[in-house]
Design a protein around this nucleic acid. Structure first.
Lengths: 106, 106
DNA sequence: CGATACCGTAAGTTATGACTTACACAGAGG
DNA sequence: CCTCTGTGTAAGTCATAACTTACGGTATCG
């Protein structure tokens, strides 16, 4: 059920833009805010949501904070999506398979 | 980019529950509403959003309307996710993850 | 030491959307 | 016909969250 946060995080356009801006390279909050039409505190708040969804990673570097993409959230989302393919949408077998996988710690 | 609607559609818990209820088999609006804690018109509105996101398919059958899962929306979402798995990004984020781990003394 | 850059948090405002009830309309069946 | 069933739509309410400005705290640098 943890992909809930990931969906919510990526549903917002501004947040998705920030996230996509990190594909190029890790960036600081100021750098990210510069490319967006919203204020810097707004970017900070979005980054907090992205971090909570395990989509980004923060690494303090002296005065600044360097944000980068983290794959955990993406993995969960992909796992959820794959559950709609693993089997021809029959009954609950896909869901069961997903649960078993996560129980094994994968 | 059209995956925007898909993200928004699946971000709502009620809408995701409705969508997941269709994994078992195609269902009518009444059947779907019965399994949800919200009113029937609410389910109708959710279905409109899901349909607009190309996540469900509707087939009128006499008096009722039979809804079923449509792959188009899921395909777009998966395509978007897969774009984050390019080799460069994979190597880059793996490096970040490794650094963070070693900083934690793990 | 100041002074400045970088960033997070608080508080308040506003827009969005999820929900309700009420209504309209088409098909099935007596 | 008339009624019931199944569903979509309209209008209005209310909660949420996205945004702003203001402020506080911590490094860096002169």
């Amino acid at each position: 059920m943890t992909y809930t946060e990931v969906f919510i995080a990526l549903a917002d356009p501004t947040r998705r833009h920030i996230f996509e801006a990190l594909r190029e390279r890790p960036k600081t909050v100021g750098e990210l805010a510069e490319g967006q039409p919203v204020s810097r505190p707004a970017v900070s708040q979005h980054l907090r949501v992205l971090e909570s969804a395990r989509l980004v990673n923060v690494e303090p570097q002296g005065n600044r904070r360097l944000y980068s993409i983290k794959r955990d959230g993406l993995n969960e989302l992909r796992q959820y999506l794959d559950s709609f393919w693993s089997d021809a949408l029959t009954a609950y077998s896909a869901e069961i398979a997903r649960r078993v996988k996560s129980e094994k710690g994968e």
